[in-house]
Write a protein that binds this DNA or RNA. Structure first.
Lengths: 158, 158
DNA sequence: TCATTAATGTTATAACATAACATGTTGGCA
DNA sequence: TGCCAACATGTTATGTTATAACATTAATGA
């Protein structure tokens, strides 16, 4: 697994920072980061990896929340809409965003060997996709950019 | 719908061209384009849009093939592996590729209004994603590049 | 011909996701 | 305060997408 990578940053403080940012964002926009929503975001921040909706659901059950599928999906969709969670389409799973903002599009590098997911980002409005879309007059509302493959660590240890 | 777009090219000949290419490819690689596989590719080429696996399955049933889910999924995965079909991850559906080759990565523009899907392509090895992956030593085996939004025609008629 | 591999058939079930409606909670305003 | 409206949650049921596992059949080639 990706022990090296994970030790490279202070996970605890990064987690708290994002949670604070989410709270602030919701306050500003008059949205509610309710207990369920906060629990889901917290779980994803803790895991620091992609989780399926039913794993989230199991976590909610353990924490004493109602645990029918819609509960998890509603929270995930809320967090996705405000940009603090992304869906990894190729894995049907969800991951916390550690640098939410509106000027970048997330790019995910998914390692098939260690399951680690790295989030990169590219400039919105200047990237190839937007250029390509602009050429044909297509207006983008959502970009999914995902690469599956093998990460450096796994390549090295192979 | 996208009547204009569709009339812009000779759909029939393009369909046949791709089918020929698939046959040739399989011959060269010693792979078998069996009746089920050909039927699936043909269905996708005819529709000229993304179909769900269970729609494919229904088509197979009508054509007299066995119609349990694995039959459709196996054929789709075979065609995907050889690059003649792509999966649209955001729609959980499958679409024929009209210009299969190994030097480009497909990019899909998915119109939420008319459901039309446009396949574009970008240069492999020179695009931003590969550059981004290279920086970190990540080796890509599969790229998913999909944009959801509104196409020019729909924007104009809105 | 017979062993091997590839493909297909078939049953069952896993995994992912939402519709629809009931109930509770919150905040504003008459 | 009492009521309404909007939002959030609870709950049941079901829809949709996908695969595991094993049996059977077809093609290939020593």
């Amino acid at each position: 697994m990706n022990l090296i990578k994970k030790s490279l940053h202070d996970h605890n403080s990064c987690r708290q920072k994002v949670m604070e940012a989410a709270k602030l964002y919701c306050e500003e926009k008059n949205l509610k980061l309710t207990p369920v929503r906060e629990a889901v975001l917290n779980m994803l921040l803790n895991e620091h990896q992609a989780l399926g909706a039913y794993e989230i659901l199991e976590g909610l059950r353990i924490s004493g929340f109602s645990a029918q599928p819609p509960v998890a999906y509603r929270a995930l969709n809320f967090l996705k809409d405000i940009g603090f969670v992304h869906k990894i389409e190729q894995l049907n799973s969800y991951i916390a965003c550690y640098h939410p903002d509106t000027t970048h599009s997330p790019v995910f590098l998914i390692c098939q060997s260690c399951n680690d997911i790295t989030e990169k980002s590219i400039d919105r409005h200047e990237d190839e996709f937007n250029l390509l879309a602009n050429e044909t007059g297509f207006e983008i509302t959502n970009l999914v950019l995902e690469a599956k493959g093998t990460c450096q660590a796994c390549l090295a240890s192979a």
